[in-house]
Computed example of a mutant assay.
Amino acid sequence: MAIEYIFVYGTLRKALATPMHDLLARHCHYVGEGTMTGRLYDLGDYPGAIESVHRDERVYGELYRLADPQLLALLDDYEGCTPAHAEPREYIRKAIPVILHDAPPVTAWVYLFNRDVAGLLRIGSGDYVDFIHSAHASKAYSDESF
Rank of each mutant, 00 (worst) to 15 (best):
M1V: 12
I6T: 09
V8S: 06
G10C: 09
T11E: 03
T11W: 04
L16R: 04
T18W: 02
D22N: 12
D22K: 14
H27Q: 15
H27Y: 14
C28H: 03
H29G: 14
Y30Q: 00
G32Q: 05
E33R: 10
T35W: 00
G38I: 06
G38K: 02
R39Y: 00
R39N: 05
L40K: 01
L40G: 07
L40T: 09
D42I: 12
D42A: 15
D42T: 12
L43I: 13
L43W: 06
D45P: 09
G48C: 13
G48R: 11
G48S: 10
A49D: 10
I50V: 15
I50A: 12
E51H: 08
S52P: 10
V53A: 15
H54Q: 11
H54W: 04
R55H: 07
R55I: 07
D56N: 12
E57H: 08
R58Y: 00
E62Y: 03
L66H: 00
A67Y: 02
D68H: 08
Q70S: 15
L71Y: 01
L71A: 06
L72A: 06
L74I: 14
L75C: 04
D76T: 14
D76C: 05
D77C: 02
E79W: 01
G80R: 02
H85G: 10
E87S: 12
P88Q: 01
R89N: 14
Y91H: 10
Y91Q: 08
I92M: 06
R93P: 03
A95V: 09
A95G: 05
A95I: 01
P104Y: 06
P104V: 13
P105M: 00
V106Y: 00
R115I: 09
A118G: 10
A118R: 11
G119R: 10
L120A: 11
L120S: 06
I123R: 03
I123E: 02
G124K: 10
G124F: 05
G126W: 00
G126H: 02
V129C: 07
I132L: 14
S138A: 15
K139L: 15
Y141M: 11
S145G: 06
S145D: 10
F146D: 14
